Simulated assay, not measured.
Amino acid sequence: MKKIYLIICLFTAMSFIKAMAQDEFALMEEVSIADSTFLIEEGRASYYGTRFHMRKTANGDVYNMEEMTAAHKHLPFGTILRVVNLKNDKEVWVKVNDRLPPSSKRVIDLSKGAAKSLDMIRDGVIPVRLEVPNQETIVSLIDYYQENKPEGMRLRLYPEPLEFVRPSIELLELLIDMQDERIFGSIY
């Protein structure tokens, strides 16, 4: 009878540890999903350089090819974006200060300085992901576009993530020791 009790307790402890490991794996999946919270668009990026250097942009700024700026079809001027090169995972933060033509197949046209940071000069055109810095920017874009959100643009609000405190290994060891005491303490 005591052996059966011991086996049941061991299986219970193992199940507990396995469940905790599965919860940790699920949490890792949630973190990778949360990484896309601020994603607003994906597509192809190009860059423009010396020909437009020191000319005026659509918002009136003077284009400096070494600054971290970009042209977009419809994002409001002044929007800050993180551009991620999907070929090498390099990223750069840029400010929208110019316009792409409405017929462009690109989602963004970067300054030469931003293109260098993304290591895309040799490629010329690369696949990219565009992200905004926070929920407030998404709220302002939803307000800006209202019912006229551009096709292909993703503007979603997510609830604030819950704070999760991962149990320490000492706590797990304590729980196992307590199980051992119950099991072996009852045998002797």
Rank of each mutant, 00 (worst) to 15 (best):
M1K: 06
K2N: 04
K3G: 13
Y5H: 10
Y5D: 07
L6P: 07
A13R: 02
A13P: 05
S15H: 05
S15G: 10
K18Q: 11
A21P: 10
A26N: 14
M28R: 15
M28E: 15
S32C: 12
D35E: 12
T37G: 12
I40E: 03
E41S: 03
G43C: 05
G43T: 12
Y47G: 01
Y47H: 01
Y48G: 04
G49S: 01
G49H: 01
T50Q: 09
M54V: 05
G60W: 00
D61Y: 08
N64A: 04
M65K: 05
E66G: 11
M68P: 06
M68A: 11
A71Y: 08
H72R: 09
K73E: 01
K73D: 01
H74A: 02
I80T: 12
L81S: 01
R82S: 13
K87A: 11
E91Y: 06
L100Q: 03
L100N: 04
P102W: 03
S103N: 03
S104C: 01
K105V: 10
R106S: 04
R106D: 02
V107A: 05
I108H: 02
I108P: 02
L110P: 11
S111A: 09
S111K: 04
A114C: 14
A115C: 11
A115F: 15
K116A: 06
S117V: 05
M120K: 11
V125K: 03
V125R: 07
P127L: 07
V128Y: 02
V128H: 02
R129C: 10
V132F: 01
V132Q: 05
P133N: 08
Q135G: 08
E136P: 14
I138K: 00
I138G: 00
V139A: 15
V139I: 14
S140E: 00
Y144I: 00
Y144R: 00
Y145W: 02
N148A: 10
G152D: 02
L155F: 09
L155Y: 13
V165P: 08
R166L: 14
R166T: 13
P167C: 13
S168Y: 00
E170V: 10
L171N: 06
L172W: 13
E173W: 12
E173K: 14
L175V: 15
D177K: 14
D177Y: 14
M178Q: 11
E181N: 06
R182W: 07
I183H: 03
I183E: 04
G185C: 14
G185P: 11
I187W: 15
I187V: 08
Y188E: 14
Y188C: 12
